[in-house]
Simulated scan of single mutants.
Amino acid sequence: MTSSASKFYTIFVFVCLALLLISICEVEAKVCQKRSKTWSGPCLNTGNCKRQCVDVENATFGACHRQGFGFACFCYKKC
């Protein structure tokens, strides 16, 4: 009985570690930054930029960043 319990425990620990490694690998997905295709004018409000990127361009996030002499809206998507 002790031998089978030991085998079960070993297999259980191995499966848990495998699942943990898989979840860690998925978290490290690359994110690509691209200038918004639908935003026009200077980007002065990151909240509006984020909303535009998420709602219109199906991105995961958006933010205003300096580009040249002004600010532009950039969208972030999984690569």
Rank of each mutant, 00 (worst) to 15 (best):
T2H: 04
T2S: 03
S4V: 10
S4Y: 05
S4H: 03
A5C: 05
S6E: 06
S6H: 01
K7V: 04
K7P: 00
K7Q: 09
F8I: 02
F8C: 01
Y9L: 14
T10G: 09
I11N: 08
F12C: 12
F12S: 13
F14P: 00
F14Y: 11
F14M: 14
V15T: 14
C16A: 15
C16N: 12
C16W: 12
L17Y: 04
L17W: 08
A18G: 11
L19F: 15
L20G: 08
S23Y: 13
E28T: 14
A29L: 12
A29E: 14
K30P: 00
K30F: 11
C32S: 08
Q33F: 03
K34T: 13
K34L: 11
R35M: 15
K37G: 09
T38C: 12
W39V: 10
S40G: 08
S40N: 15
S40A: 14
S40E: 15
G41I: 09
G41P: 12
G41C: 15
P42C: 12
P42S: 15
C43G: 10
C43Y: 04
L44D: 14
N45W: 10
T46M: 04
T46G: 10
N48R: 11
N48E: 14
C49W: 01
R51V: 05
Q52C: 09
V54D: 02
D55L: 11
D55C: 02
D55E: 13
V56T: 07
E57R: 04
E57F: 03
N58E: 06
A59T: 02
T60R: 10
F61L: 11
G62E: 00
G62M: 01
A63L: 13
H65A: 11
F69Y: 12
F69K: 01
F69D: 08
G70C: 06
G70S: 13
F71V: 07
F71A: 06
F71D: 04
A72L: 11
C73L: 06
C75R: 00
C75G: 02
Y76P: 02
Y76D: 04
K77Q: 07
C79N: 05
